[in-house]
Design a protein around this nucleic acid. Structure first.
Lengths: 165, 165
DNA sequence: CGTGAAACATTAGCGGC
DNA sequence: GCCGCTAATGTTTCACG
């Protein structure tokens, strides 16, 4: 459980796995000039310490008919204010956060500094679906005051790889 | 090479791989009640058709010392305007897009509708690093007019899995 | 689509630096 | 402590029914 330091070899492993998470341990070991056993031990350590959160397949949104990507700024009711909830009491932030988890079209949501409280990344088929999402879900939520949407015209860059060099 | 339709079984495979991209073909085949061979054939077809863009490891930004996530709105010089470039001529958008590719701290960049032209997602160690990035890279870029930053206070939701149900 | 066999990869144990 | 070897086990990937 300890605080294993991440050395240069670990970083090379992470860089490789961020690009291709399905390389075999052997292949990775070759690329970093190590034999398979210690390479695997390092990978397992990185997994267990939580540095590697997991492995996923990345899909192509357009080929799946999800042609519209929106960023939505949301402002909530203010104050340390409380609102009714099934369990008695909860902040607007709690209620909104819980709702966000249940909306599949919201692929990311951050509480933010600045004028707006939350920034949502919303992935949907088309404008009709987006409109329904805003009208029926977002604006109907009791904690939401205000919503501002912008739409992605072009994806200039998009990577899940963190800059660890 | 054709336009293979994605059926219900394919979607179940994709749902599984979006969650765990390292499951063995055998494991996936079991979960969808299929034998390994046809399951693998489907996966390969999804990979080759580009529906599956790739497999990656997801890392934990905080454990790697990347404690600051910013969203930065950028406005560029307007017009079909052109600016000098090494190859003679290029739009401001081209120049800015090329620059973005070279900045490792920018993990995503979209051209957007609305008042700002681009939305950048910037992942850095701390505010000192962010400040250097804005001053030395962004604001120094000849096409950039204006920059507005917001910072993530809390990650409410974040998934690479697309809503394909 | 399923079966089976060859090729390949993973992983635990042990000895050496 | 960390590396590398070996050998057993499990997985992928074909050709073929």
């Amino acid at each position: 459980m300890a605080n294993s330091e991440i050395d240069a070899i670990d970083r090379r492993i992470l860089t490789i796995l961020q690009e291709n998470g399905r390389l075999s341990n052997q292949e990775i070991a070759e690329r970093i000039n190590l034999s398979p056993s210690p390479c695997l031990r390092r990978i397992r350590r990185l997994e267990e310490s939580g540095v590697i959160r997991g492995y996923v397949a990345l899909l192509d949104a357009q080929r799946l008919g999800l042609d519209l990507l929106a960023y939505v700024s949301v402002r909530l009711e203010k104050g340390g204010g409380r609102a009714f909830s099934p369990h008695g009491e909860a902040t607007h932030a709690d209620l909104f956060g819980a709702a966000v988890q249940t909306w599949p079209e919201v692929v990311a949501c951050h509480a933010m500094t600045g004028e707006m409280d939350y920034l949502l990344r919303v992935q949907v088929e088309d404008m009709a679906h987006f409109s329904r999402f805003v009208q029926d879900q977002l604006l109907r939520h009791p904690s939401v005051i205000d919503v501002k949407s912008s739409f992605s015209l072009e994806k200039i860059k998009e990577t899940t790889a963190l800059p660890i060099l």
